[in-house]
Design a protein around this nucleic acid. Structure first.
Length: 583
RNA sequence: GCCGGAUUAGUAUAGUGGUAAUACACAUCCAUGGUAAGGAUGAGCGGGCAGUUCAAUUCUGCCAUCCGGCACCA
């Protein structure tokens, strides 16, 4: 997928196109005032104040038509500079421009770009003439809060892309269309993985047999990994007393994102939005020696968050989900090693799934906005430095993001891009000095002093839900053999004559733990083969006269045209090997 | 939550101010087969609540859900 921001040529082209779109909008909406029109990874947009007017779907073609005219007209795009004072005078009736100009240092000149009857202040650079801007498409529009603040006025935002020629534009639009085909919500429905129901409630997924099978495999997989790394697994309740969240501080900080509190017999309860506090209480229930640390408590845990309606996105972001969570209680001198181990585990797991496009993000506090966070400056700086140090030592490439920290501490997040281009967190490692303090956690050190441990929160698969969403989009629904809910189907050529052997083959495969079914319906062989291929079953085994004679099967893999006949024993050996190797 | 859009059978879509269509899936029957759709018949549909109208799936309002963004995302 193209990155319009990083590609220099596309960047200039799209920035110029944003100006041309603004010019077209000004022609159609003379009252329009313009905020900013930057280039982003997906193309360009412009934020526009249309007074009381708003953009509707049918307005985009009208704006496009006006833009075509401007591009055909081919006016030169001319740069000139004026002083800050002149600019303030010239734009004194435009509060948005005044806002932008006032941010420039006093005494500097401000550059302006003019094309025909339209002038905008802009740093540039731009293409020479609007005639280079013929191959564009307006993609979508939306309301967008001015300066990203929900208390501000909603501006009209229009998104578009501009490419150098018609062929690349067409190819890009086709790519966008392809991405929609891999949307996990579409695949999930087609493959009967999960469902939603208005009757059950918005954002509350129900896992169908196929989806549940994958979740079970994933849960087993990750718990086995964790066991091998010295974790222990626990289970804690989804409904808890609000006392717990009063201690943790979540009730003060997180209430708006929780389901409403329940009250009965004078006690208050809530659906947990996370399970950290329960693990704190569990840790605290016994006395710990410094020799016993780290204690790594893990849980496949259901959590509930009342996500804003507009945020719900299939199983990528829902209101009920299952975390692959763990809390590592350790001594300060163990932090670096523990974070390293978790990072290694993440890389190991991503390797098993063949993921290649992800990036590590060091999520830091926003120092401008300190009231959002617990704790003092020293601790924050120390924690952030510790995480940064580990990533550097491990030579893991990462970028830093200010304002993305948890309220209790900085994080290392692993970010992936969904089919529709959302940047989402899959795995996370969080360093926390706050909860141990609030829950007064302790261990006994070598001199018999009670000392506070540190907690590392971590999720490898993140939530099973989001992980499945990403897995479906990455594989386009063509799951590897070890994960496919239905791994194989046995198709007898003539059900009456060969059905018994088909059933025998299926039984033998099942005894090897393979998820298999027999399709002995009275349908033509071609029909059953087609159905097997369409439902993306990895392996299809056709058996008829010849196979019965040889005790063999004819194997055809999903998406392959050719079929290979091999003995049942050979086949089982190869298949078991493939599943064991998680291919 | 905010701005815009959408909601027609199990699924994907079409169409209309006079109660609705196509494909696949489903059911019954016939066909009994070697790698992507054998045939016939049948059943099944306008998110909810109001309003306008002789008449609403179609127009209007409210609600719900979904979609695209925005805001949010511990």
């Amino acid at each position: 997928m193209l990155n319009f921001k990083e590609n220099e040529e596309l960047n200039v082209l799209n920035h110029s196109c944003a100006h041309m779109m603004a010019q077209a909008v000004k022609h159609l909406y003379p009252q329009a005032k313009f905020w900013v029109g930057p280039v982003v990874e997906e193309g360009f947009y412009y934020d526009i104040d249309l007074g009381d007017d708003v953009i509707h779907d049918e307005d985009l073609p009208k704006i496009e038509k006006e833009m075509k005219k401007l591009a055909k007209d081919g006016k030169r795009i001319v740069r000139h500079e004026i002083s800050r004072e002149e600019a303030l005078e010239q734009f004194k009736d435009d509060e948005y421009k005044v806002d932008l100009i006032e941010r420039m240092p006093e005494g500097t000149n401000i550059s302006m770009y003019t094309q025909g009857d339209f002038t905008d202040l802009c740093r540039g650079p731009h293409v020479e003439s609007t005639k280079l801007l013929k191959n564009f498409k307006l993609l979508k529009h939306s309301g967008a809060y001015w300066k990203g603040d929900k208390n501000n006025k909603v501006l009209q935002r229009i998104y578009g892309v501009c490419l150098p020629d018609a062929e690349t534009l067409e190819a890009h639009l086709a790519d966008l269309e392809d991405a929609k085909q891999r949307d996990h919500r579409k695949l999930g429905k087609e493959m009967a993985m999960f469902m939603f129901s208005e009757t059950v409630g918005a954002g509350l997924p129900m896992w169908l047999p196929n989806g549940f099978t994958i979740r079970r495999i994933l849960a087993d997989y990750i718990m086995d990994k964790e066991l091998s790394q010295g974790y222990v697994h626990v289970m804690t309740p989804s409904v808890v007393s609000t006392k717990l969240y009063k201690i943790s501080g979540h009730l003060a900080h997180y209430k708006d994102d929780m389901f409403p509190i329940m009250e009965r017999d004078g006690d208050e309860y809530c659906l947990r939005p996370m399970n950290c506090p329960e693990h704190m209480v569990m840790y605290k229930s016994t006395l710990h020696s410094y020799r016993d640390l780290p204690v790594r408590i893990a849980e496949i845990a259901n959590d509930f968050r009342f996500e804003a309606g507009g945020a719900l996105t299939g199983i990528e972001r829902s209101r009920a989900f299952t975390q692959n969570d763990s809390h590592i209680f350790c001594r300060p001198d163990q932090i670096a090693d523990e974070i390293k181990n978790v990072t290694k585990l993440i890389l190991d797991v991503y390797g098993d799934f063949g993921f290649e496009t992800y990036s590590f993000r060091l999520s830091l506090r926003d120092p401008e906005n300190k009231e959002k966070y617990f704790g003092n400056d020293d601790l924050w700086e120390k924690s952030e430095a510790q995480l940064r140090e580990v990533l550097k030592e491990m030579d893991v490439p990462f970028y830093e993001a200010i304002g993305e920290a948890a309220f209790y501490g900085p994080k290392i997040d692993v970010q992936v891009r969904s089919a529709l281009g959302h940047d989402v967190t899959l795995s996370t490692i969080q360093l926390d000095y706050q909860l141990p303090e609030r829950f007064e956690l302790e261990y006994v050190d070598s001199e018999s002093n009670k000392v506070r441990p540190v907690v590392i929160h971590r999720a490898i698969l993140g939530s099973l839900d989001r992980f499945v969403a990403f897995l479906l989009e990455e594989t386009k629904g063509n799951l590897p053999l070890w994960l496919a809910p239905k791994q194989m189907v046995v198709i007898p050529v003539a059900p009456e004559a060969h059905g018994a052997y088909a059933n025998e083959v299926a039984d033998i495969l099942r005894s090897h733990g393979i998820r298999v079914s027999v399709d002995a319906r009275n349908e033509k062989l071609g029909y059953r083969v087609r159905e097997a291929q369409m439902s993306k079953i990895p392996v299809e085994l056709v058996v008829g006269e010849g196979e019965i004679q040889e005790r063999s099967v004819t194997v055809r893999r999903y998406g392959k045209k050719e079929a290979v006949r091999m003995t049942l024993d050979e086949f089982i050996k190869a298949a078991a090997e493939e599943i064991r190797n998680r291919k």
